[in-house]
Design a protein around this nucleic acid. Sequence first.
DNA 1: ACCGTTTTGTGCACTTCTTCACAAGCGCGT
DNA 2: ACGCGCTTGTGAAGAAGTGCACAAAACGGT
Lengths: 231, 231
Amino acid sequence: MTMTPTRGSDSGHRGGRRTAISEATVARLPLYLRVLTSLAESGVSTVSSDVLAEAAGVGPAKLRKDLSHLGSYGTRGVGYDVDFLVYQISRALGLTQHYSVVIIGVGNLGQALAGYGGFGTRGFKVAGLVDSDRSRVGSVIAGVEVRHVDELEQIVAEHDVSIGVIATPASAAQDVCERLVGAGVTSVLNFAPVVLSVPAGVDVRKVDLSIELQILAFHEQRKSLVEQETA
Amino acid sequence: MTMTPTRGSDSGHRGGRRTAISEATVARLPLYLRVLTSLAESGVSTVSSDVLAEAAGVGPAKLRKDLSHLGSYGTRGVGYDVDFLVYQISRALGLTQHYSVVIIGVGNLGQALAGYGGFGTRGFKVAGLVDSDRSRVGSVIAGVEVRHVDELEQIVAEHDVSIGVIATPASAAQDVCERLVGAGVTSVLNFAPVVLSVPAGVDVRKVDLSIELQILAFHEQRKSLVEQETA
DNA sequence: ACCGTTTTGTGCACTTCTTCACAAGCGCGT
DNA sequence: ACGCGCTTGTGAAGAAGTGCACAAAACGGT
């Protein structure tokens, strides 16, 4: 991580990114984006950090600092222009370009994902839907035909897929992942409950129901313990 | 957030929790748990922090520190006893007691969740499955009969449900959440793409496909920018 | 009984993230 | 033109999390 911290430097790019955007901030930007689009649809054209923070469920200071990392896009005494901010966040996240996604595994989860509205609206396109079960091949889900997993590499190449979504059983996940990486995919979203190992340079994010439940269980337990001690 | 941080206090409970377990650690414990059970099934009875860390995709120091928060359950020069560690983590997470879960919304996602194996194996029981669509009421999914959402409060009371899983469209999520909270549920896992507002004392965790995709998009963009600059 | 090897548990330094608090900036009313 | 009220942007302090490096402990072989 040899990283020169772009101090000051505003060179050229007026209004461009000022500091490297931190990981924690990146994780929150999509949230702001959603709240903002929702506000825009409600006809709101300007919003203050207090209101936006409240709506996003974060502190106002944090929100302002997050936004400040992408530039000075607010007006003091007024707030932020909603549309403009939507655009800026979209740009920062890379949503102004389009990404093709392939979903592997067309079980309940895969179907839920394919049908999820959030894809189209934000620069993502379901370019492929594959499954290893030939009985499912050929059916059409959310307007996309299911193809056999053997054609995975071909689909990736055809549509220049950059993100693979793994919705297979755990046992198949690592294999599928390797095939994705082999085909040139560098970002993977994994719903299977396994730890994927990937070469450096490939990003993996995992979404795991059982982990989330267990975290909730921990807090539930803590609540009942505290309750007990207080009593 | 007035929270007295249980300083020291090791009183009594030998081998019990030593320090308050940090949030970051709690988030990783389920992961270790999974890797450990998988190892146990493979017949491994002892594991070192290096091996376990590798399998879980974290650094060995971090792993040891995480585990040290729940007590000194390793043997120097040897490693950790897999079964024992499974038990200790389970206990720390509160998985030794059983939690009833109700899933609201039986669309593709709700069905996927209901069918997810991870429930039964880890102290969670799907006590109820509800939907607002009467045409779905009465059908049986994963061995549980779908009931109408009007019966939500009754189901929560009957089965002493402590965790609610929201798998409804975004528009219904806040309403459903309020009803859950009203019925006494204090932990919510939200799959709908909205920010839920809940009273203090209620935990909400959200799982959001579109946010994860956008984070991946950001990194994809960064990769191609770096590539471009390097060239 | 002792020594060498192995691996844990943890103090310490370091990085990252969050929160506070306030100066700088903007617009509006007078 | 000027001051007042509001809101941003940010330095600095604090909190939380991470990684290093090593002493303390356990085992096995001799």
